[in-house]
Design a protein around this nucleic acid. Structure first.
Lengths: 332, 332
DNA sequence: CTGAAAGCGCTTACAG
DNA sequence: CTGAAAGCGCTTACAG
């Protein structure tokens, strides 16, 4: 392994000059060319540890995720990776496995590793999160959730909920079930529902009941069973695709046809939703793009640039086959 | 931030003594206790960069994956993470996005970062992979694939194929389609099929045709269409769950019922396979456990211990509803 | 068991 | 624009 000394020697300059070249300082054209050539010849790559030891910073962006086995997470991660790679930053992923304790730990751990910035995919932001972020003095961007004290990139959950509500109402549904998640999750549990309720209010005169499920498919199957015991509505609007898939399973177990027996919708546009039968009407979010945007923003923050407190990523309804048209009008 | 000097001073010893304590060298009980206390008091954490700069190694295990949005990958990653965390190692994930070029780059890149060991989830191992591994002189474990020159943790694909073949044959199927993948992928494309063919040979007298698909669901839909054009068999054995889901979609598009019109099986036991209707008969692999095992083995290798050249992780058939019983015998 | 010293490969003021 | 020197926070022989 060559060191900066080898390069300096071969180029006939001091190592500080090589260092200056490496870091974009002012170097005469002649020396620049010489150093450039020698570096290429020797395939010299600076030692990251030595760099970080002196400079006390790295070109690593840390990303803390709650789980790896989620479509939204993996898409977001890929978006982040795309953008970071193009900008010569490295991505360090830490998985908390839904453990809030580890989330906090990782913030400190990443700070210790001198990551330049932190991307946080957290379901909730507690006071301890905020303290950790303050303690570490690292730029942070929250993805998918929002908090007054932090920068964030969020999905437009309110609009998403609203559009979905409007959609099923326009299809003539009035006996409605909304199968949501805990309100601890502001984005999915609160905002998505808020938008949905706004649509209900606009239309008025709806019979809507609200239920709660866990995020996992099998939890949704159970939740759907309870819901069906209560009554079978004409439509079940599910807060996520996973939940919608669970509902579809529960329905098929009871021999309730979709959409003729009950319509079902999801949020997320996971890959399978197109494959299941009937194909699921759902809301597409731009996870990958949101990831890219977050990466862009964190780099800007790292460089001391101004960044909007909250960036909103859009959504788009994907109409497929799981919603029945109850208006009596044939569709086109 | 406290440094080793601060600790040494506070403890009234030399920093080399503190370092020795930190690295498990011999220290008298008295000094040990004193140092321990001071470290705790000051919440001292050694600077990783300084450590790595001198020691020229880290406690990082690099893992190179082809993609993030795959059940098998994310499960494996979680297994690796589990094990590594328990052993005080850190996991660094690099995603190649199916780009072979980046796979090679990352091997060098990780070496540059002085990871102690490398876990490789590659679909194929080329000469350039081997060269990179040799160049870097890092212990490597291949996951999911096998190669004479490398240590590996693999799934028992031959047995899996065999058991699946046996299963459908015992259910009375004789008009068989096998929808596989490219033979470039030794594990899935070759071994899984080999096992399957062995089962066919044992039974003899089967009409089996072999087709090929890509790994993605929509590619499988297309492949299934071609297959159906050819003829509709009594069963389609798909090399992966994703492919099976694509086949199910294609069948439902043609109004072919499953399993009465055609039976379908997969491999992998992805979470959705239990949720789709009908629930898919598939082969469960122990991705998470394989990940743990690989992590265990790489640590052993790093520590210079002996490790079996190849460790085999098991499989188990999961019988659900997608295979029709053609024997005329009622089940149980 | 313990300490003084050298050195890992860089970067960063400071002179010139 | 360029170089000499100090120093980042550790570890590692080497003496004692």
């Amino acid at each position: 392994m060559k060191t900066i000394i080898d390069i300096a020697r071969a180029a006939g300059v001091a190592k500080s000059t090589v260092s200056r070249y490496l870091n974009g300082g002012s170097v005469s054209d002649a020396t620049r060319e010489k150093i450039e050539r020698i570096i290429k010849q020797n395939q010299y790559v600076p030692n990251t540890f030595a760099q970080s030891l002196k400079a006390k910073r790295t070109s690593i962006i840390g990303t803390i995720v709650p789980r790896l086995d989620s479509y939204a997470v993996s898409q977001t991660l890929m978006g982040i990776d795309d953008e970071l790679r193009g900008r010569q930053y490295q991505l360090l992923i830490a998985n908390t496995n839904q453990d809030l304790e580890r989330e906090i730990e990782f913030i400190y751990e990443m700070a210790r590793q001198k990551v330049s910035g932190l991307l946080l995919l957290a379901a909730q932001v507690t006071e301890r999160h905020l303290k950790a972020v303050r303690d570490c003095k690292i730029p942070v961007i929250l993805i998918g959730q929002q908090h007054a004290d932090l920068h964030s990139v969020i999905h437009d959950d309110v609009t998403a909920g609203y559009l979905m509500g409007k959609h099923i109402l326009e299809k003539g549904h009035r006996h409605i079930a909304y199968l949501g998640v805990t309100e601890q999750d502001i984005a999915v549990g609160v905002r998505r529902k808020q938008g949905f309720q706004r649509a209900l209010r606009e239309y008025g005169n709806c019979d809507a009941r609200f239920y709660t499920s866990g995020f996992r498919m099998n939890e949704a199957v159970t939740a759907a069973d309870l819901l069906f015991e209560d009554r079978v509505p004409t439509v079940i609007v599910c807060a996520t695709d996973n939940i919608a898939l669970g509902v579809m399973k529960a329905a098929s177990l009871r021999h309730i046809l979709i959409p003729s027996g009950v319509s079902v919708t999801g949020f997320g546009d996971y890959e399978v939703t197109e494959i299941v039968h009937p194909a699921l009407t759902t809301m597409r979010f731009y996870y990958r793009e949101a990831g890219q945007l977050a990466a862009e923003n964190i780099i800007a923050l790292v460089n001391g640039e101004e960044v909007a407190k909250v960036s909103v990523s859009g959504c788009e309804i994907i109409q497929r086959e799981s919603v029945d048209n109850l208006t009596g009008l044939s569709i086109q």
